[in-house]
Design a protein around this nucleic acid. Sequence first.
DNA 1: CGGAAGATCCACT
DNA 2: GTGGATCTTCCGA
Length: 205
Amino acid sequence: MTALEVLPASFYRRSAAAVARDLLGRLVSHDVAGERLLLRLVEVEAYLGPDDPACHTFGGRRTARVASMYRGGGHAYVYAIYGRHFCLNVVCGEIDSGAAVLLRAGEVREGGESMARRRGLTRAARAGEIAGGPGRLTAALGVDRTQDGVTLLSGALRLLEGEPVGEADVGVGRRIGVDYAGEAAGWPLRFAVRGSREVSRPRPG
DNA sequence: CGGAAGATCCACT
DNA sequence: GTGGATCTTCCGA
C-alpha cells in the first residue's frame, strides 16, 4: 500500500534542510513513453541558498543556469555536470529563496526494467546500480535539461507522498563532492535512509 | 575569447 | 584507489 497523492505546494515552502529530511521515503514519479517510473528516495542533500558556499546561488548569483532555483518551492532544477550527467533538484522555500534539495539516490518501485535499460545495464541489476547516485537517478528516470524549471505539482514529473521515514532510520552526514566550499561542506545536510543498499558511500551515520 | 572547474560515473590496476 | 571522459557554464582579460 503506497500513498500516491502528489505532495502539495506547502510541502516545499520550508527550509531546504527541513524539506530534505522529509523527502526520505517519498516517491519520485516520471511518466514517460506511456509508462510510470517510480523511485523511493533514500538519499538527498540540502543546499540552503545565497548564504551557503556550496550552493549554486551562493552570494545571490543569478545566471541563466540557476534561474530555476529562484522560481519558488515545487519546481525542478536540473543542471548538467561533467559533460555527461544531469542532477535533479527540488526547489524549496518562497520565490527568490534560491534553495533546493539534490536527489542523490532512490530504490526502484515501478518500471525497474525500463530504468535498467535507460541506464544501459544489460545483466540483472544489483542493488544500488540503477538509481544509486545523482547522475544514475536522472538517467534511470529519463530526466534531462528539458525538465529544468517544470513544476512538480502536476505534469509528468511529480513527487508523491509515499511513506515518511522515522528518526531512527535516518542517517545524517556531510555533503558529497563540495569540499571547495570549505567548512560548509561539513554541514549536516546530507540525509539517507539507514540500511539502504542504494545509498552512496560514505554512508552517513 | 580562453581557460578552468564541476553537487559524477566508469573502467582499469 | 586512480584517472579519464566530456561539455556546459562561468569568470576574467
